[in-house]
Computed example of a mutant assay.
Amino acid sequence: MKRQSDHINDDLLVKYLLDIATPMEKAAVAEWLTEKEEHQRYFEHFRLIWTESKKLAAVSTVNENDAWSRFQQRVGTNENTARIVQLDTGINWKPLLRIAAVLIVLLGAAGFWYLSKTIGQPMIVSSGQQIKSETLPDGSQVTLNKQSTIEYAASFKKERSVKLEGEAFFNVAQDPGKPFILKVNDVTVRVLGTSFNVKSVNGKTEVIVETGAVEVSKNSNSVQLKQHEKAVVTSDQSAPSKQSNNDELYNYYRTQTFVCNNTPLWKLVEILNEAYGVNIVIADNNKRDLQINSTFTNSSLDSTLQVIGLTYEIEVEKKGSQIILK
């Protein structure tokens, strides 16, 4: 097991699990647990290893006295500590502390056992109803839109392989020796270090490059994309098509801002329906391709629709579960 920080290490977690940590140490561990989900996951893994270590301790041939001496040196515990704890609580903690010392020695073995059990098991992260951020083993940052899932290995070896369902923005850490390969449906996106957005819905996959360059392929057909370019491929197409892209609307779920640059009304409506979980329909087909040039920042749906209505002479009508633009 690894040292977590200058203050939160495995020895302190052992004391925390034994409930012999000082109030200050307990507060430090509690604060550490709330800082990151990674810390919570580590602690749960540590707790599992701790449980398994107890089983190993029962049959261990580790020299208890030697282990106890090493434990004393590591966490600043001594014979007087055990005596004080006994006086304060009426419980003789010394045998438990000695067991803890043996378990500390065995944690390495238990950790190896745990890793051997979990190796090859993919990490699966789903966003559910919330937009979620995740850091991959290589340091790459991923922002998942709602109802999206990524799957990846706990550690990357020869290549960095990720599977996606739904939509996500990737800011990929540079590592020329390990290509970053994203699989979504039957489409493959290959990069070395860049940022891009991928959206897959109803059999249609769209890849938009924000910085750097990517390769998008399906079957044996591929296209190279750079900044302000995108690739679109549907389930019935054998190859992705390359297009220019000046639209920043795709970023709405990361920035909480709807940026429209000559964006057709129908596309803005699609995004608003997705973002707010509503059913907006365009009743006047002549207005479907109306070009929208506005930025809506931290706006409510009502205020956004009001601006659209006043600016582009569109009537907004609410009828049952529908919002009708005409």
Rank of each mutant, 00 (worst) to 15 (best):
N245D: 14
K15N: 13
R47M: 07
L225Q: 08
A57S: 10
V142M: 06
V187N: 05
V187C: 05
P264M: 15
L164T: 00
W266P: 05
E313W: 04
E165N: 03
A101P: 07
E52G: 09
G108S: 12
Q306G: 13
A57K: 06
E315S: 11
Y276I: 11
K132C: 03
E210Y: 00
K146A: 05
E151W: 09
V125M: 10
Q306R: 15
A213M: 13
A283F: 08
A100R: 01
I119L: 09
A231G: 01
F170P: 03
E37Q: 04
K158H: 01
R288T: 14
E317T: 15
H39L: 13
I104V: 06
M1T: 05
M1Y: 01
R83V: 13
R41Y: 02
G128N: 10
A30H: 13
E35D: 15
V102Q: 05
L325P: 03
S300L: 08
Y312L: 04
T295I: 15
I119P: 00
L97W: 11
S300R: 06
V201T: 14
V187S: 00
V209Y: 01
A100W: 01
K218R: 15
D302G: 02
I84S: 06
L272F: 12
A153R: 07
L17V: 15
N145W: 07
Q40S: 08
E151S: 14
K36Q: 05
P95H: 02
M1I: 02
I20E: 02
L17T: 11
R83A: 14
T255C: 10
E215Y: 01
A28L: 04
T143S: 05
Q141S: 01
W93M: 12
D175Q: 10
Q129A: 12
E274I: 11
S69H: 13
T295P: 02
W50C: 10
N251W: 03
D11S: 13
L325F: 14
Q4C: 11
I271W: 09
K158G: 08
H7E: 13
E38R: 09
W113R: 11
N80H: 03
T234I: 07
R3N: 10
A168D: 01
K178L: 10
V85Y: 00
N285K: 15
T234Q: 02
S126D: 04
N285Y: 12
V281D: 12
N63G: 00
S69E: 14
F169S: 00
K157A: 06
S217K: 09
T311G: 07
H7T: 15
T89I: 02
F170K: 03
N293M: 09
V198W: 06
F258T: 01
R83Y: 11
V214E: 00
S294R: 10
I208A: 02
V75Q: 04
V184Y: 04
D247G: 01
N286E: 15
